[in-house]
Amino acid sequence: NQASVVANQLIPIQTALTLVMMRSEVVTPVGIPAEDIPRLVSMQVNRAVPLGTTLMPDMVKGYA
Rank of each mutant, 00 (worst) to 15 (best):
N1Q: 15
N1C: 08
N1L: 14
Q2W: 14
Q2S: 14
A3T: 07
S4F: 03
V5I: 14
V6E: 02
V6C: 04
V6H: 01
A7L: 03
A7D: 01
A7M: 04
A7K: 01
N8I: 06
N8V: 10
N8S: 11
N8F: 04
N8C: 07
Q9D: 07
Q9L: 10
L10M: 13
I11N: 01
I11W: 02
P12W: 04
P12G: 06
P12E: 09
P12V: 05
P12Y: 05
I13E: 15
I13S: 13
Q14T: 10
T15H: 07
T15W: 05
T15P: 01
T15Q: 08
A16H: 13
A16I: 11
L17R: 00
L17F: 01
T18L: 08
T18G: 03
T18N: 05
T18V: 06
L19T: 09
L19R: 11
L19S: 09
L19A: 08
V20E: 12
V20Y: 12
M21E: 02
M21G: 02
M21Y: 05
M21T: 02
M21I: 03
M22L: 12
M22G: 00
R23W: 04
R23N: 06
R23L: 06
R23V: 07
R23Q: 05
S24F: 07
S24Y: 08
E25T: 07
E25C: 08
E25I: 06
E25Q: 13
V26E: 08
V26H: 13
V26D: 06
V27A: 06
T28V: 11
T28P: 01
P29C: 05
P29W: 04
P29H: 05
P29Y: 04
V30F: 13
G31S: 00
I32Q: 00
I32A: 02
I32F: 01
I32H: 00
I32G: 00
I32V: 08
P33Y: 07
P33K: 08
P33Q: 06
P33A: 08
A34Q: 06
A34I: 06
A34Y: 06
E35V: 15
E35D: 12
E35L: 11
E35C: 06
D36A: 10
D36T: 08
I37T: 06
I37F: 03
I37A: 07
R39H: 09
R39K: 15
L40D: 02
V41K: 03
S42D: 14
S42I: 04
S42L: 09
M43N: 04
M43P: 00
M43H: 09
Q44W: 09
Q44D: 04
Q44F: 15
V45M: 09
V45S: 04
V45K: 00
V45I: 06
V45T: 12
V45Y: 00
N46E: 10
N46R: 10
N46M: 12
R47S: 10
R47K: 12
R47T: 13
R47P: 03
A48S: 13
V49H: 03
P50R: 12
P50L: 07
P50I: 06
L51Q: 14
L51P: 13
G52W: 04
G52D: 07
G52R: 03
G52M: 04
T53R: 11
T53A: 12
T53N: 14
T54Q: 02
T54V: 10
L55Y: 02
L55V: 09
M56H: 08
M56G: 04
M56V: 10
M56F: 09
P57A: 10
P57W: 14
P57E: 07
D58G: 10
D58E: 13
D58R: 08
D58N: 10
M59G: 03
V60H: 03
K61Y: 15
K61L: 15
K61R: 15
G62I: 04
G62D: 14
G62V: 04
Y63V: 04
Y63W: 14
A64Y: 09
A64V: 15
A64I: 13
A64W: 09
